[in-house]
Write a protein that binds this DNA or RNA. Structure first.
Lengths: 244, 244
DNA sequence: CGGCCGTTGATTGGATCCAACATTACGCTA
DNA sequence: TAGCGTAATGTTGGATCCAATCAACGGCCG
């Protein structure tokens, strides 16, 4: 394993037993509500990829994963297919699966997608937001203030954004937004490293919610666009700084 | 099989042998460039769903499909997983796969996604379009004028739009656009039925290309937005008219 | 007569086995 | 010694078999 950021093929470094099944293994159904082994494998692999335990370029050997998860190769194969469709792994026929590399270009891509979709979702959602939904968003902002763990912070951020868009209707659009927000978690660590604790982001979050409370669609959209553009610029700067 | 549009569960009506393997079966590698049975099954099923031969609500029995394709159940299973990730089939654990229903809400969802993503892609692409790419787009417009078959017309329309966005960079964004454009094919027949032959659409296509030729980004964006909004309205009217 | 429960059939999820492909290493030849 | 062809090996793709689950049917009991 050479570099956790660039996309070179590195030696397979699957998650260790301690990482993947502290207690999940004992009661898989209860722990995560998984109904099939495929869902279980997919959920664990996805989490491991998104939080960086499986860096870009890691080769994913089916047999090795199957052994660690305590299942046969088949659920692993199906889980890998699902992850491929989510652009988290690349599969080549007869050559196996590799964790998708992250890069400055991919980050810019993700931000462009988010900018387009989230602005549209926000426009559609604000006029229909209920008081309960706005309160939920406010709760999530408060929770982010006192959350030290980067992983949970990413989840809270994701839930906040989705809460704001929840009234947009358009289930498939929201699903795409959620997917992109999840993918963004892979870059969150760099964002935090380059940007302290993101006090600015919290300011933007509050501004967006305030605008939503007042029903000022365009004001909220403007904040969101600036929010995303600044985040994109931060990531781009980070990659430039390290020659990515 | 009751209604090809609404989403009620209907009897399984898989593609017939004549539909799925006229000669593809004889030389699968050459015919479509498929490298694995899974790719083959996925491509055929996807085409059948998109062009309406497998209407929404059709139950997809693994064994039945496997028999018709001349393969075992496993490639079918993996292909269904891929299609599920593309929102073309719904899979429920232990209960099988069903072709995703189409509806007014789903159509509106798709248009909202397209409006957001394609506008963004067009903005990014126009400044970087090469003369060759613009010529390609012009060729596709001309081809659409003299294409009677609805299926091929949809493909040409897809290629035209993608040609306009090709210079946007952002591979993943373009991939999403392509996916949505493909999904749109399911609604194209209704669009044509309700709207004659779409003379208006061709007018918009030419206007977009002209604006792109002159580098007028905002003019092209305005046409695209109107183009999509009108198409969305046509589909909505169609569904309203038939009580959908 | 109606609702609940166990049983049966059909279908999918998972495991194991075999075949096909890709990569690598090796040896032969020019 | 460099290059090519071939064989060996490891990995994935596909087939078959078994287990688990769901839906439907029928019988039993209230």
């Amino acid at each position: 394993m050479l570099d956790p950021i660039n996309g070179r093929i590195v030696d397979a470094r699957p998650v260790t037993a301690a990482e993947i099944s502290p207690l999940d293994r004992l009661a898989p159904e209860l722990a995560g509500g998984w109904r099939t082994a495929t869902e279980y494998v997919e959920a664990i692999l996805k989490a491991a990829i998104l939080d960086g335990r499986l860096p870009g370029g890691t080769a994913l050997r089916q047999e090795e994963l199957a052994a660690r998860f305590g299942v046969s190769r088949m659920p692993v194969r199906e889980a890998l297919r699902q992850l491929e469709a989510q652009a988290l792994v690349d599969m080549l026929p007869h050559r196996g699966a590799v964790v998708t590399a992250i890069s400055a270009a991919d980050a810019a891509d993700g931000y462009a997608i988010r900018r387009a979709l989230e602005v549209a979702a926000l426009r559609l959602s604000i006029p229909n937001l209920t008081a309960a939904q706005r309160a939920e968003a406010a709760t999530l902002i408060a929770a982010m203030d006192s959350e030290p763990d980067a992983g949970r912070l990413g989840q809270l951020n994701r839930r906040f954004h989705l809460a704001l868009y929840a009234a947009a209707g358009h289930a498939r659009m929201l699903q795409l937004v959620e997917q992109e927000l999840s993918a963004f978690d892979r870059y969150l660590r760099f964002h935090l490293a380059a940007h302290g604790r993101g006090e600015m982001a919290q300011h933007d979050h509050r501004a967006m919610l305030d605008a939503a409370d007042r029903g000022e669609v365009e004001a909220a959209v403007a904040v969101l666009e600036r929010h995303l553009d600044q985040a994109a610029a931060t990531i781009a700067r980070f990659f430039r700084g390290r020659g990515g």
